[in-house]
Write a protein that binds this DNA or RNA. Structure first.
Length: 303
DNA sequence: AACCCTAGCAACCGCGCGCAC
DNA sequence: GGTGCGCGCGGTTGCTAGGGT
């Protein structure tokens, strides 16, 4: 048996509150208090759900609310408390007079999270990223080659699909052997050509890998490192493919020295992708840990 | 000027807990 | 102890204003 709805959805208004509605609600609550939220809209002459009235009152209309910017002291309090209690917004808000849980939550999600990340602190654990990276590196076992291939392929398929579908139309028609100076491609600048060339190689290798999974040697794929370092976000499939794509596990693999060593061993020479990787920014370099990402991926400057 | 993108905020939704019967 | 109800909470969604192209 499901829970009954808190109100008749057909008969209630939703969305932004008007000043008249605010007035009605405020004056009703001033006279009668907030005893039964289900009855309040009916008695106050509002076509609103009781829940909606409660939210409007607690988050906006309550006379004791502060509506301005959060002060530094308030922000510090939020960060401190969040490090202890986590996402218990109501608990945190209770320590900040005039602030609601919704206020605190919004402020955290829009400002404080980014602020902490920018300072090199993980907003979830409140530990420095360097500390987390070290933990991950020591916790995870080095992956074997089969896992890596599976993981990277899973990650790769999604990213390539994404990339290929969002790429300009000309990419679809551009044959890999297109000669320079061809009228259809002359407008492409050299950097773009270089990138397209890498993408094309990835594309060919990927389709080969899908057709001949058994004899597929992932590390022989030109541009793998480029892709790994560029598309490190939305993996799918095995846990390794997930973690491979977060960047953190890449770091772990780097730390263990297995991934790049393995790739270079098998490549025999430095791949084009490898060059790309090396040209990427070393945003994180603590002791033996390296986190290689292209500069475009520098979401969070690390201290 | 028009369009697109993004950040910030308000509001909604669903779940779980506590209380009364 | 079981059930129904009301409320609070945290996560998510949607709207809007402002900035960039």
């Amino acid at each position: 048996m499901g829970r009954i709805p808190c109100c008749e959805k057909d008969n209630v208004k939703r969305g932004q509150w008007t000043p008249e509605e605010d007035n009605k609600l405020s004056s009703y609550i001033a006279q009668h208090g907030t005893r039964n939220w289900r009855l309040i809209p009916k008695n106050a002459g509002l076509q609103r759900c009781g829940k909606s009235c409660r939210l409007r009152w607690t988050n906006y209309l309550r006379p004791d609310l502060k509506h301005g910017q959060f002060s530094d002291a308030e922000e510090q309090t939020i960060v401190k408390l969040h490090s202890v209690v986590g996402n218990r917004w109501s608990l945190i808000a209770a320590q900040l007079p005039g602030r609601t849980d919704n206020d605190v939550k919004n402020h955290w999600n829009t400002k404080l999270k980014k602020k902490l990340s920018g300072m090199g602190i993980d907003p979830v654990t409140h530990k420095p990223f360097s500390h987390l990276m070290a933990e991950i590196a020591t916790t995870l076992a080095p992956p074997n080659e089969a896992n890596l291939a599976e993981a990277a392929l899973g990650c790769f398929k999604d990213e390539m699909l994404h990339l290929l579908t969002k790429k300009r139309m000309d990419f679809q028609f551009q044959h890999p052997n297109t000669t320079p100076g061809n009228s259809t491609t002359t407008y492409i600048n050299s950097k773009q050509e270089e990138k397209d060339d890498t993408i094309e190689k990835i594309k060919i290798s990927l389709s080969r890998a899908m057709q001949e999974p058994d004899c597929f040697s992932f590390a022989s794929m030109s541009g793998f490192q480029y892709a790994l370092s560029t598309f490190g976000n939305e993996g799918s499939g095995s846990p390794w493919s997930q973690s491979m794509c977060t960047g953190s596990a890449c770091t772990a693999a780097d730390h263990q020295g297995h991934l790049h060593d393995k790739l270079e061993e098998e490549n025999g020479e430095e791949s084009e992708g490898g060059k790309e990787l090396r040209n990427g920014s070393h945003i994180f370099n603590s002791d033996s840990i390296l986190w290689d990402l292209p500069s475009d991926d520098l979401m969070n400057p690390i201290v």
